[in-house]
Every structure is written in C-alpha cells, then in structure tokens.
C-alpha cells in the first residue's frame, strides 16, 4: 500500500502484546500483497485472469467488495474500484455462494481508496481477539482506528489536519479516514464519473465503526462534495481549506 503503518499497544504485558502486534502487522502485509494492483499475484489480477467465471473468496475479501459496491451505489459512482464511469457494473457479487465475478479482463481494479482501511479493520479485529484493550493503529496517518482509550483519557485525540487550530476528534472504538486535495498541482485522484482530476483544496474526514467504509466514503465525499446520510454511528467533516 506504499505507506507506513504504525501500531501503539498500551499495556504492561509485553510477552502478550508484542506477538499480537507482530501478527497484526503480518496481516497488514498479507492484505497489501492481496490488494496490490502491481503484482499478478494480487486478487485484482487473479479476477481479471478468470474474467467471466465466479471466483470464491474468503468472507473478509467478500466484505470488501460488498462495501465497495455499497459506497459505489450510494455515492452514484463517486467511489469506484475500477476508476472509470460505470465500470463497477463489470463486478458481480453472489453473497450466497460468496463469489466475485469480473466480467471483463481489461478492467484493472484499484483498491487504493479502501485497502488501508480494510487492513486496519483486520488488524484491529486480531488485536481485540488477542485481548488488547487499548491501542491506536494508523496507515499513512490518513486512516486510523482507536481501540478503547489511552489510560486516563476519554479517547484517542486526533487532529484532522496539520495546521494549528485544526479540528480534533476523539476516537474510542472507532475508525477515522481523511482524504484531501490541495491547491496547485492536479490531484492524483480522478473523478470516475468524468475522468477529470479533482480540484481542491478540500478536506474530508469520516468517523465511524468501520475503517474500510470510512476509507471508501471519505474518497466518495471528496469527489462528489455531497454529504450522505450515514446513520447515527457516523460523523462527517467537509472543509474547503485555504
């Protein structure tokens, strides 16, 4: 995923925490290998090679495709794994058989706007399962999860920008994703509906129960500028920044 992941695990049982942290980082690396679009061993290349045929996947991977489909539909195409208008139509999901079918071999799937959150969700689930009750995880500082709270604090306090006076939020068993465009150079993110580079400057932060969904939504909102209704567990910040 071309970025640095860091985990902070709070506790005094190093013999329990260190292996849990190492295993969580292994999971993140595994997710990186699975969702890279640069290697033929990635799931995208695998689906393209088997284009037209349903490919059975594990529940976590299916969940990623299902969430990607959900955000694509609800954002009317502002988030799109295929990066091109209506190309998400080439992906078919069968929840009963837990299969994914890519109908065209020439579609290159790009998981860049969802894989970091997905990897963090997997890592957080592993840590909770291993008995970790207080931790902070982030990937490239743009996606983060707070597990429990730091000692004596109500939550993990995160600033939504590097400038002084930037808004802050408290994460407590919640995930955060931030997406932004800057003034000047064309942004690498393209609006899949028009094929044009995004214009800035704009910053979007999304907080909710899933880092994977927060990731996808922060990109969708950055692209569309539209504020969706996501339910009581979710918060959205949109700032036109200077």
């Amino acid at each position: 995923m071309g970025t640095r992941f860091e985990l902070v695990l709070v506790g005094d049982d190093a013999e329990r925490h260190r292996p849990a942290g190492e295993a969580a980082l292994e999971l993140i690396l595994e997710a990186h290998r699975r969702f890279t679009r640069f290697e033929p061993s990635g799931i995208g290349a695998h689906l393209a090679r088997r284009a037209g045929a349903p490919v059975a996947v594990d529940p976590d991977t299916f969940g990623l495709f299902a969430d990607a489909g959900l955000v694509w539909r609800r954002s009317e195409g502002a988030f799109d794994l295929t990066g091109a208008a209506r190309a998400m139509n080439t992906l078919h999901l069968d929840p009963a058989a837990r299969t994914v079918t890519l109908t065209r071999a020439d579609v290159e799937l790009d998981f860049g706007a969802i894989a970091k959150g997905h990897a963090l969700d997997l890592a957080a689930a592993l840590l909770r399962n291993a008995g970790v009750e207080s931790a902070f995880l982030h990937g490239g500082t743009s996606s983060a999860i707070g597990i429990g709270t730091p000692p004596g604090e109500p939550g993990w306090r995160v600033a939504l920008g590097s400038e002084s006076g930037a808004s802050t939020t408290l994460l407590r068993d919640q995930a955060l994703s931030v997406s932004a465009t800057w003034a000047g150079n064309p942004h690498p993110t393209v609006d899949p509906r028009t094929g044009e580079s995004l214009k800035g400057p704009r910053r979007v932060a999304v907080v909710g129960p899933s880092a994977r969904l927060a990731d996808a939504w922060s990109t969708a909102i950055l692209v569309s500028g539209q504020r969706p209704t996501l339910g009581p567990d979710w918060s959205i910040w949109i700032a036109e920044i200077s």
């Binding site: 013999e15 329990r16 260190r18 292996p19 190492e22 295993a23 592993l126 399962n129 291993a130």
Partner: peptide, 8 residues
C-alpha cells in the same frame, strides 16, 4: 526483528 512468539 520479531519475537518468534505468536498470540495463543
């Protein structure tokens, strides 16, 4: 750099 320990 790893502990060679695993959760569990």
């Amino acid at each position: 750099k790893t502990s060679w320990r695993f959760p569990g």
